[in-house]
């Protein structure tokens, strides 16, 4: 099953594959969207520029995953990104949560601690996934993973630097960071899960099993947690706000979708 060429897919494999691709694409897309709302509002100008590059890379990755879905006949990449209801979205709920109180144009009081922790923890999970996907039984996905992986070194370096520094900083930083960690872990299971078809996804060799990926994430993070004197137990991983892989979402996603598709919906058939 190397290529989506003439041979028809085993329907069971295809549904596992598309389930996985929707997760990968929707995760990156919505987090990049949240990143784009931060534009102009970061703690300092230099960081604004750096953060925006990461958001662009991440949206670029989403576009590559949507392209794989388009190639499988799921619709064109722009309708996949802009034209689907919340209930059809498979992103983790953690990634759709608002950046903080307020609107991105007027009253945004965004939480930098939440941004740092959410992005750092997610990027490490994404790195674990991409490393595993390099051996995916679906070659086009393995090819994309190899490319995406290249840009994750910078994303990890960037977020890890912020994470370690703020964890070790004085003032309000530590309590703010700990509150953000609690919030992120409360929905982090939603990032790590491969969803209702998780077993099938692993059985078909599309990616390794969820549990192995989770252990690898912990293995990568533990030295960092130790270095900042933080203990994290996987018993606190939860999906407090729902399982996005099942299409369960919050009002935050509805609001985001209506903003991000506002112009697209003026005329989805038009060329923009």
């Amino acid at each position: 099953m190397n290529k989506p060429d003439n041979k028809p897919f085993d329907p069971a494999i295809k549904s596992a594959l598309t389930a996985l691709l929707y997760q990968l694409a929707d995760d990156d897309f919505i987090l990049a969207y949240r990143g784009s709302e931060w534009l102009g509002l970061a703690p300092h100008i230099e960081e604004d520029v750096a953060f925006s590059s990461i958001s662009q890379d991440t949206m670029g990755h989403a576009a590559m995953f949507y392209q794989l879905l388009e190639d499988l006949g799921e619709g064109n990449i722009d309708s996949l990104a802009h034209g689907r209801e919340a209930s059809e979205r498979k992103n983790a709920v953690l990634l759709e949560m608002v950046n903080g109180p307020g609107h991105y144009l007027s009253t945004a009081q965004y939480d930098w601690a939440f941004a740092v922790v959410r992005n750092y923890f997610y990027v490490q999970a994404k790195k674990v996934r991409m490393d595993s996907l390099k051996n995916s039984s679906y070659q086009p996905l393995a090819d994309v993973a190899l490319k995406v992986n290249m840009e994750l070194y910078y994303h990890l370096l960037h977020w890890k630097t912020w994470f370690v520094q703020l964890m070790q900083a004085g003032g309000e930083a530590r309590p703010r960071m700990e509150a953000a960690i609690k919030k992120v872990l409360g929905d982090f299971e939603g990032v790590l899960t491969l969803g209702p078809l998780g077993n099938e996804i692993a059985e078909h060799g599309l990616i390794e099993a969820e549990e192995r990926l989770k252990q690898r994430w912990l293995f990568m993070m533990e030295p960092v947690f130790e270095s900042v004197n933080l203990s994290v137990s996987e018993s606190v991983f939860a999906m407090k706000n729902g399982n996005g892989r099942k299409g369960e979402h919050t009002a935050d996603l509805d609001a985001a979708l209506s903003t991000l598709s506002e112009v697209y919906n003026v005329d989805p058939a038009a060329s923009w």
Partner: peptide, 17 residues
């Protein structure tokens, strides 16, 4: 030149700026 609180963050900012 750029402004950053320390050299680790300066390095992380440099490439994309």
């Amino acid at each position: 030149s750029l402004l950053a609180p320390n050299r680790e963050l300066a390095l992380v900012m440099a490439q994309e700026n």
